[in-house]
Amino acid sequence: MEEKPFQEFTARYYGLCTVGGILSAGATHVAMTPLDVLKVNMQVHPIKYYSISSCFTALMREQGPSALWRGWTGKFFGYGAQGGCRFGLYEYFKQVYSNMLVDQNRNLVYFLSSASAEAFANVALCPFEAIKVRVQAQPCFAKGLHDGIPKLYASEGIQGFYRGLVPLLGRNIPFSMVMFSAFEHSVDFLYRNVVKRKREDCSKAQQLGVTCLAGYAAGSVGSFISNPADNVVASLYNRKADGLVLTVRKIGLANLFTRSLPIRMLLVGPSITLQWFFYDTIKILGGLPTSGEVVTDLRGDEAG
Rank of each mutant, 00 (worst) to 15 (best):
F9S: 02
A11Y: 07
A11Q: 05
A11L: 02
R12M: 02
Y13V: 00
Y13M: 00
G15Y: 00
C17F: 05
T18W: 04
T18F: 04
G20N: 10
G20T: 02
G20F: 05
I22T: 06
L23V: 14
S24V: 01
S24W: 01
A25R: 15
G26T: 02
A27F: 10
L35E: 00
V37F: 05
L38G: 08
N41T: 07
N41P: 04
N41Y: 02
N41S: 03
N41H: 04
M42L: 14
M42F: 03
Q43K: 10
Q43V: 08
H45M: 10
P46Q: 09
S51Q: 13
S51V: 03
S53H: 09
S54R: 10
F56R: 10
T57E: 06
T57S: 13
T57F: 04
T57M: 02
T57V: 10
A58Y: 08
L59V: 06
M60W: 11
R61L: 05
R61K: 09
Q63S: 13
G64A: 04
G64L: 07
G64H: 04
P65T: 11
P65C: 02
S66I: 04
S66N: 12
A67N: 10
W69N: 12
W69P: 14
W69Y: 09
G71A: 05
W72N: 14
W72G: 15
W72F: 15
G74P: 11
K75F: 11
F76M: 09
F77Q: 06
G78F: 05
Y79R: 07
Y79G: 11
G80S: 01
G80L: 03
A81T: 14
Q82L: 15
Q82W: 05
Q82V: 11
Q82G: 14
G83T: 07
G84R: 06
R86L: 12
R86C: 07
L89S: 09
L89T: 12
E91Q: 13
Y92D: 06
F93P: 00
K94W: 00
Q95P: 01
V96H: 05
Y97W: 07
S98F: 00
M100K: 12
M100F: 12
Q104I: 03
N105T: 13
R106E: 01
R106H: 12
N107K: 05
N107C: 14
N107M: 02
Y110R: 05
Y110H: 12
F111D: 01
F111S: 08
S114P: 08
A117S: 12
A119L: 14
F120I: 12
F120A: 09
E129L: 10
E129K: 09
A130P: 08
A130G: 06
I131H: 13
I131V: 15
I131D: 07
K132S: 07
K132M: 07
V133D: 08
V133T: 14
Q136M: 14
Q138E: 13
Q138P: 09
P139E: 04
C140W: 15
K143F: 13
L145E: 02
H146S: 15
H146T: 13
